[in-house]
């Protein structure tokens, strides 16, 4: 395969890489948000990590 050594080719590849890196980061943010919502909705262990003593997590 011929490798494009020109500056235009280099810029195009860098732009393409940066675009997909940005998309990956955006996707990661959305994923963290959705998982947080899902875990909060289920009750989960979220309460256990907020350092506040709550009656709902105390064993009777």
């Amino acid at each position: 395969m011929v490798v494009d050594q020109s500056k235009d080719g280099f810029d195009a590849k860098r732009k393409n890489r940066n675009f997909w890196l940005a998309m990956s980061l955006a996707g990661f943010i959305v994923m963290i948000f959705l998982v947080t919502i899902a875990k909060l909705s289920n009750g989960g262990m979220i309460e256990g990590f907020d350092h506040n003593l709550r009656p709902s997590i105390l064993e009777e």
């Binding site: 494009d4 050594q5 280099f10 590849k13 860098r14 393409n16 890489r17 997909w20």
Partner: peptide
């Protein structure tokens, strides 16, 4: 500097 950068950054998203 440009030449060096070009050599190091030939990878496209498809290659990754």
């Amino acid at each position: 500097v440009l030449e060096n950068e070009t050599i190091l950054s030939q990878a496209s998203t498809h290659d990754y």
